[in-house]
């Protein structure tokens, strides 16, 4: 990558970052996520205070649930709105008329949005962390850090997918609805479908696991539980199967899956954008 490419990416990225600050959707997401995470850590303790026991598992379970619900939505929406919105407003044309490559524009936009998204996530986790610290902390902070890291990753994954949607769409409304549908699929429908299929066809744990690993949200869940609990026993037979098959490579495998989920949609998005940038 040449110097000018990096400069151009940096210019677009910086613009995207400053735009994100004014993006109402983004601010809304940040507030919702931060607020929920904060209330979770507060609420998670309210019951405990009376009994004086730390329910790390429980707080973390709720956090995992929250992340799986909100962060994919954030990533998908921000990604989907990014290019399609500019395309619709017409502001993409003057940008592309500059001496920049479409790839540089897309990467710049992706990185800029990613920075914003990560800032929002860190903000939410940071504040909840302070609340937790005030209440005496929970287990090891390093677990929390890993959970934050995994959340950043799942955010990036869905941002990539969002960008892919965006690259196709010339109307932000279409992009947003597509993103919403995809969010429903990732977070709810695919699981429910799998549950139904497993019940009807009596899927073996191995098959179920394989299908589950296709879903990035589930990859996040597996990685988070594995990190915090040290094993996947809470996930029953399929969890045990995963631990048994992958052994020490479970976490690396999950990470590879994550990275694939980040890069493959992004590469596709670049390909599509190069074909039809305006």
């Amino acid at each position: 990558m040449t110097n000018s490419a990096i400069t151009n990416i940096a210019i677009v990225m910086r613009k995207e970052v400053s735009d994100a600050r004014r993006n109402r959707w983004f601010i809304l997401f940040t507030i919702v996520f931060g607020g929920l995470a904060l209330s979770l850590s507060l609420f998670g303790f309210s019951g405990l205070g009376t009994f004086g026991i730390a329910g790390f598992g429980r707080t973390v379970a709720s956090l995992i649930n929250l992340v799986m619900l909100i962060v994919p939505l954030m990533g998908l929406m921000l990604g989907a709105m990014s290019i399609s919105g500019e395309r619709e407003r017409g502001s993409l044309l003057p940008l592309l008329a500059q001496p920049v490559m479409p790839t540089e524009v897309l990467l710049g936009k992706y990185l800029g949005t990613a920075v914003a998204l990560m800032a929002a996530i860190l903000f939410g986790f940071g504040f909840s962390g302070i609340v937790i610290a005030w209440q005496g902390g929970l287990a090891q902070f390093s677990y929390y850090l890993i959970l934050v890291g995994l959340t950043l990753l799942i955010g990036l994954v869905h941002l990539s997918i969002g960008f892919l949607i965006s690259a196709f769409m010339s109307k932000s409304a279409t992009a947003i609805s597509t993103a919403l549908i995809l969010w429903l699929i990732i977070v709810f429908i695919s699981d429910l479908g799998l549950i139904g299929t497993a019940v009807v066809l009596r899927l073996a744990p191995s098959v179920l696991l394989a299908f589950t690993l296709i879903n990035p949200a589930q990859v996040f869940k597996l990685a988070a539980i594995h990190t915090i609990q040290g094993n996947l026993e809470i996930l029953g037979a399929a969890g045990l199967y995963a631990a048994d098959v992958f052994r020490g490579f479970l976490f690396p495998t999950l990470m590879v899956l994550f990275l694939l989920w980040v890069f493959i949609p992004l590469l596709f998005a670049i390909g599509v954008f190069r074909q039809r940038s305006i």
Binding site: V187, L192, A237
Partner: peptide, 18 residues
């Protein structure tokens, strides 16, 4: 309880939805 393999969906938002 009937299909223990489904435990893999524990902690998923879909379970709450269900």
């Amino acid at each position: 309880e009937r299909y223990p393999a489904l435990r893999i969906f524990t902690y998923s938002p879909s379970v709450n939805a269900l």
